[in-house]
Simulated assay, not measured.
Amino acid sequence: MRSVLEPTRRARASGARLLANRDLTQVLRVLDDDPVASCMVAARLQEYGLDSRGVYGELWSRGGPGESLCFSGANLVPLRGARDDLRAFADRAVRGPRICSSVVGRRELALPLWELLAGQWGPARELRDDQPLLALERTAGVSPDLRVRRVRPDEIERYLVAAIAMFTEEIGVDPRSGDGGRSYRRRVQNLIETGRAWARFEDGEVVYKAEVGAMSRRTGQIQGVWVHPDCRGKGFGTAGTAAVANVVVSSGRTASLYVNCFNEAARRSYAKVGFRQIATFATVLLD
């Protein structure tokens, strides 16, 4: 019996192809139709284009960017396409070693793609199949925390303590595993140096943190929201996120984030800020 991932002759002839800079204008036009959900990919392409190593990944299409798109890098991100397109993406993904640590994107794309990949890449370490994608296009509906500010480069050690705690709590693994934390430190350092890491410090310790992990021309995606355990339930998360969202909105962009459906406290907090759900994401975490 033929495997679900084994391409037919027709699929081989119309499989996923690698896009290049000559496709960039059309790709960006397509991503602009869905600016919030495509923010992670659009931000990279707007900064680096498609031929630069700075993208740290590849963009695939089957039949043209207007019909199907998928980004393959640290995350595998399906952006648009029908079932046959997802099958072509899955076929291309399993041809070589897996380079991604997750499959993430709109639920209606990410879950069917994972179904096609699970036989080769499964089982998943964790499946988060209901993650409301939220957006805010105007000033927050609550007062922002005026003590939340950009983190300075000389504060990286104190900020890293909170960032590691957040990552471990949210993802379930220590980001220092593997290389002793060098790559994670570089990532956090880049966020700080580019002015996209925010925190409130008390007595030299971070009590609230968040980052704008991706910043496209139209959207700023907030990530890594965390409140020190001793300070939870006191409004730090709501007021702090309002402060970060206001900065994004004041730049002329839509503030966005996605949250696990079961995190009721966070969802109530974001609703107070004024975020509304515009779609649903799903994330498949891989070992």
Results as ranks from 00 to 15, higher is better:
236 F>W: 14
171 I>W: 14
224 G>E: 14
253 R>D: 03
253 R>A: 08
245 A>K: 03
247 V>P: 02
230 D>I: 02
174 D>S: 11
232 R>G: 05
177 S>G: 11
206 V>A: 03
157 E>K: 08
236 F>T: 00
236 F>K: 01
186 R>W: 12
184 Y>D: 10
233 G>R: 00
190 N>S: 14
165 A>I: 04
211 E>D: 15
254 T>V: 14
169 E>D: 14
188 V>Y: 10
215 M>S: 15
149 R>H: 12
203 D>K: 11
213 G>Y: 10
155 E>Y: 00
255 A>N: 07
251 S>Y: 02
203 D>I: 01
240 G>W: 00
214 A>M: 12
214 A>S: 15
178 G>R: 09
240 G>R: 00
213 G>N: 11
152 R>F: 07
191 L>W: 11
200 R>H: 13
158 R>H: 05
222 I>M: 15
213 G>W: 05
239 A>E: 11
172 G>W: 09
173 V>K: 11
173 V>I: 09
177 S>E: 15
229 P>G: 07
176 R>L: 14
210 A>F: 04
217 R>W: 06
236 F>R: 07
165 A>R: 09
181 G>R: 06
175 P>H: 07
152 R>H: 10
170 E>S: 11
194 T>I: 03
191 L>S: 12
247 V>K: 03
156 I>D: 09
174 D>W: 06
188 V>P: 14
245 A>T: 06
249 V>G: 13
234 K>R: 15
208 Y>P: 04
210 A>I: 00
148 V>Y: 00
158 R>M: 12
151 V>W: 10
153 P>K: 07
